[in-house]
Design a protein around this nucleic acid. Structure first.
Lengths: 223, 223
DNA sequence: TCGAACAGTGACGTCACCGTCAGTTCACGC
DNA sequence: GCGTGAACTGACGGTGACGTCACTGTTCGA
């Protein structure tokens, strides 16, 4: 006779707390196994509750996942402040750096969620994919607008703003993901920030003038 | 009684061709539905062969997927040429542009595979994930080495080469993915190339010098 | 003309995961 | 101490996708 857990109110816990308990367990399992490899049994086992209990708090696997992503998306969104260009006390450069800094910190302080958001959130199901795409589009849109504003003010170089937005976001996403995967310490945040900022400000290629494909003409730089 | 397809050698087709037929059908279905939402039945239905036939050519769903990814990865890798820095007839700038150009073209000419590689290839299963990660690391490593070389030659700005590699690759990945999703024409390749290249060369932020966080010192500039 | 080899078929048994629900325990009011 | 309901449990039946295999029609050499 194996001693088995007894049902009932033995572990009396407020409803909200149990919910969080399941959410937290699910987060860890998702991060480790990925969404598709994770089963409800994995989650409840990790959370230490019974299968049925799970369904008292969530509709299905997707619902937990969705909840996790939502919370994190909100946190990330809140980490970004809209940039003002008319306050001499707050140089744009500082605001840009502040934004990057808080995003980096948020991601480094919630590594599992960062990993999940950047990899696990694609291909869950058509409806969820659309939801993620919408959130993503919001971010892109926001940055695009800012860049357009910046261009009229002359603090952003010419170029299609949306393209620049994709390039920037892609670059940051990748670096953040790798930082999380490779387990960079939170102290690295400032270093990453500097590299990202320099990248935006100056790029890194310092090659001489481009020439025609097969006839290296020494032409004057046309501005 | 329904008229049904007759088994046997009626549709006599070389083995290689049938294999390609399945591969091609699978590619389209994967692109449309994503890996996890795709069933073997989807593939065989789309290919117009029976379930059993599929297993004559492939071990399982993952095997087709793996095959597709492999082919495309090879194509992409071949699109990149190693950069030489000692040939005065081939300026580095041109070589960089050539590399970007051929990658962009490859991706735009195989949109479905680009989409699959950039989104569908994560979370398939642990072993496959490792395989993808390995391929990806190869690319990163290659670029990192190039950047390091560039730094000793003074044509790449200071900074951790690996970080720069992640930033660049992330930026390109994102832009390419969006270009494919949004259905940009192949003629856009040259435009994308220019934007990417400028991004690498100069970034886009043109803000004035950074100042201390909370004490905006009105230093010189106006005495 | 026959039958062996072959490419292809699809019905079938299996299995992993899912969501449910009848049952259990406990806290609390009366 | 008794009844009620909230919280929890886990065994159970359903489902859909999987991989197999006995079979079918075709070709071709003997």
């Amino acid at each position: 006779m194996a001693a088995r857990r007894k049902p009932g109110r033995s572990n009396t816990v407020p409803k909200t707390e149990r919910r969080l308990q399941i959410l937290s367990a699910a987060r860890d399992v998702f991060a480790k196994r990925g969404y598709h490899q994770t089963t409800i049994d994995d989650i409840v086992l990790s959370a230490g509750v019974a299968r049925g209990t799970f369904y008292l708090y969530f509709e299905d696997k997707r619902a937990v996942f969705s909840d996790l992503i939502d919370r994190f998306a909100v946190k990330l969104t809140m980490a970004i402040e809209h940039i003002v260009t008319d306050d001499p006390l707050r140089p744009v450069a500082n605001q840009v750096q502040d934004n990057i800094r808080s995003v980096v910190r948020t991601c480094l302080s919630e590594r599992t969620m960062t990993k999940i958001l950047f990899t696990g959130a694609v291909g869950v199901d058509p409806e969820f994919d659309r939801k993620i795409a919408t959130f993503y589009d919001t971010v892109v849109q926001l940055l695009t607008e800012s860049l357009r504003d910046g261009q009229t003010l002359g603090i952003v170089a010419d170029g299609e703003p949306r393209v620049l937005a994709y390039l920037s976001i892609g670059a940051f996403k990748e670096l953040l993901y790798q930082a999380v995967i490779l387990g960079l310490s939170e102290e690295s945040a400032e270093v990453l920030l500097q590299q990202m900022y320099n990248f935006l400000r100056q790029g890194y290629l310092r090659v001489s003038e481009i020439m025609g494909p097969s006839k290296p003409v020494r032409s004057r730089r046309k501005n």
